[in-house]
């Protein structure tokens, strides 16, 4: 009973943490189907006051300070330092918004039984890639080719669609593996005579071996006891996360592109590049925090499910399957326009 109350307290703490998280993102304006000439429709943010309003206003504030700092830096070199500071702050706040792969990375971490440390690494890798893509887009299209905004916006749109397709494909592959794990767990826990379970052994995955207590081990499903340290360090350990980094990181953020083009127009492209990289650093920190929360929630769920005989594994496989499904859902939702991410800068 004592143990239970401890867990309950932890759960409560987790609830609070997640509530804050949901509140952060909570303006939750997944603007569903667009109605072209629809008059007043539910607008973003159910509350402009409070936390959301504060984040929004801070974000706008920092963003506008970036342009001011860039303009000053033209004549006063020391303004570059304040440019970097503001860019960093902006990155931290900005990543609370859509389009920075929080959802995909968090879901992937949950689905794939990854550790928090890997979550942090993935967050930084994808944020760095986002920055580099933004720099590459502006460097090639605006600086080298001196093309117009129309061309740049076309490129942004193409990259966007590619990125959504990648997320959907990544989600589909996760669903495929995790779905298999879930089905096997479902079979393993089905209340059947012991003999039948033993017979079942031969049909499943070659690595399946039922311990009789419902703990299923195999390569793709991971271990319900948690992954062994050597498994993560093993060959292919980093390659596993590559798909997540690629699908998230390929889409540059509109804010970075705007800053880069503005810097270019001021003749300070290098300062724009520095600002973008620092912004990416700030973004990575926010995404990493969210990833840690997701992994902790998952670990908590695991601790609960381990206490349960039999169905515990099923629950964990179910959660993993659900997280995999979410990635697929995000990807296809973004692709089909049901979920709006950050818009590209086309006007």
């Amino acid at each position: 009973m004592k143990r239970f109350s401890l867990l309950a307290r932890r759960l409560a703490a987790c609830v609070v943490a997640a509530t804050v998280l949901v509140a952060l993102d909570g303006a939750a304006q997944s603007v569903m189907a667009q109605n072209p000439f629809g008059g007043p429709r539910p607008a973003p943010g159910s509350e402009i006051g409070g936390l959301v309003g504060w984040i929004l206003s801070k974000q706008s504030e920092f963003y506008r300070e970036i342009s001011a700092a860039l303009r000053t830096a033209k004549s006063d070199g020391s303004a570059v330092w304040s440019l970097l500071a503001v860019s960093f702050a902006y990155g931290i706040f900005h990543a609370a918004g859509p389009g920075h792969g929080k959802a995909v990375i968090s879901s992937y971490l949950v689905a794939n039984q990854e550790t928090a440390r890997r979550g942090i690494a993935l967050s930084f890798a994808s944020a760095l890639m986002q920055s580099l893509v933004a720099i590459a887009v502006v460097a090639v299209i605006a600086w080298l080719l001196n093309a117009t905004a129309k061309t740049m916006c076309g490129a942004e749109k193409a990259i966007e669609i590619g990125s959504y397709a990648l997320i959907a494909a990544f989600g589909a592959s996760l669903v495929w593996t995790k779905g298999g794990c879930f089905m096997r767990a479902l079979q393993a826990t089905r209340p059947e005579p012991v003999l039948a379970v033993a017979a079942d052994h031969g049909h499943g995955h070659a690595h399946d071996h039922d311990h009789g207590d419902g703990h299923v081990h195999d390569d793709h499903c991971g271990h319900s006891h948690g992954p062994a340290p050597d498994e993560l360090a093993g060959p292919g350990g980093w390659r596993r996360g590559l798909a997540a980094v690629l699908s998230v990181g390929i889409r540059p953020c509109s804010g970075a592109i705007l800053v880069l083009v503005f810097a270019l127009a001021q003749g300070l492209f290098w300062a724009g590049i520095a600002a973008t990289l620092v912004m990416g650093l700030g973004t990575a920190i926010t995404v990493a925090v969210i990833a840690i929360v997701a992994v902790s929630a998952r670990d908590l769920a695991q601790r609960f499910s381990e206490a349960r005989e039999g169905s515990g594994v099923l629950i964990m496989r179910g959660i993993e399957f659900g997280a995999a499904g979410l990635v697929l859902l995000f990807g296809s939702g973004l692709l089909l326009g049901y979920i709006t991410a950050e818009r590209v800068t086309c006007l």
Binding site: G26, Q59, Y63, G97, P98, A294, I319, L326
Partner: peptide, 26 residues
Amino acid sequence: ALRFLWVFLPAVLLGAAAAEAHPHVW
């Protein structure tokens, strides 16, 4: 407690996915 988690984990993830507002153009 378990039921809580069931409702909760997706909520966290969905929350993280929800596209909320932040302007880029004034």
